[in-house]
Design a protein around this nucleic acid. Structure first.
Length: 274
DNA sequence: AAATTCTCCTGAAGGC
DNA sequence: TGCCTTCAGGAGAATT
């Protein structure tokens, strides 16, 4: 599932191959993603120089002199750089040709997006209300503590809310709470200053480690060279329900929070911290 | 205003 | 072998 580390991994993988390169042609085989790909996309990008690529939250911004293509990988999207044309598979929806390579977007579940804007992309409806980047100084324990005071929702839902902090999805929220020793159902407003400190540190640490490992591949995600991400081996809680806790050997417990599967350790993330 | 539920989609897994 | 149901999930939209 592309969360921030997977998107960052993708960015780093494709950037050196296509930044500053001219787009020769684009083939869109499937327009129906989460929102339809604009019909004008083709001619907006053709023969244009891709200036650079940025990441904001889980969005990739392809900057051109005359506008920006905004891409989201949804939950099953991936981008690969191919050195030459190869027969597209069923879910290979977009091919963007450059001089020496092509960028291929694959997305079985089509929850992704590929949009065009000629305004400042950071002011775009999808981006304008996003919270701070997790690695930004603005995302610190004081900030999180202060935001948490007004919320009764479970702390896990809280840190997955993009208005609070971006890029933390189900996998890394589960891991960060385990690392910080905080029960995922704890009401946000019960978060102590000390817990806030631990949680912020845990989120930054987990995301950094995951980026280092090339992200987490559960199913569909691949790095831009087609390799999987290797963080799955490091997961301590996510996907380990019923297995022994790495720290205390007790069985990890599964539960649902806001329709999302969650795993926690009853002993290492105690009720009393709720 | 905040919190919960619904929605898009496909592939995998489980039940019979 | 096959058909049906259920589940997974990012995150905006709709609803409570």
């Amino acid at each position: 599932m592309p969360e921030l580390p997977e998107v960052e991994t993708t960015l780093r993988g494709i950037q050196p191959h296509i930044s500053q390169q001219t787009i020769q042609k684009i083939i869109i085989r499937q327009h129906r993603l989460r929102w339809p790909i604009p019909r004008a996309m083709q001619q907006k990008l053709q023969n244009k120089i891709l200036l650079n690529i940025e990441r904001r939250a889980k969005y990739l911004l392809f900057r051109f002199e005359h506008g920006t293509a905004i891409m989201h990988l949804g939950m099953s999207g991936s981008l690969r750089v191919l050195s030459e044309m190869s027969t597209p598979n069923k879910h290979d929806h977009i091919d963007i040709y450059f001089h020496h390579c092509l960028l291929r977007y694959t997305d079985p579940r089509r929850f992704g997006a590929f949009l065009w804007t000629e305004e400042n992309p950071h002011a775009h409806t999808l981006l304008k209300n996003l919270g701070p980047e997790p690695f930004d100084k603005a995302f610190n324990s004081q900030y999180l503590y202060q935001k948490a005071q007004k919320k009764s929702m479970p702390i896990k839902s809280f840190i997955m809310d993009g208005k609070i902090v971006v890029g933390v999805g189900n996998i890394y929220a589960t891991e960060a709470l385990f690392l910080a020793g905080i029960h995922p159902e704890m009401p946000s407003k019960s978060l102590s200053k000390e817990q806030s400190h631990h949680l912020v540190k845990a989120i930054k640490a987990i995301l950094k480690q995951a980026i280092k490992q090339g992200g987490t591949t559960l199913k569909d995600f691949t790095q831009s060279d087609g390799k999987p991400g290797y963080f799955k081996q490091q997961l301590k809680a996510y996907g380990r329900a019923g297995l022994p806790c790495i720290q205390c050997k007790n069985k990890l417990i599964a539960l649902k929070i806001g329709q999302r599967s969650t795993v926690y350790c009853h002993f290492c993330q105690p009720e009393k911290s709720r």
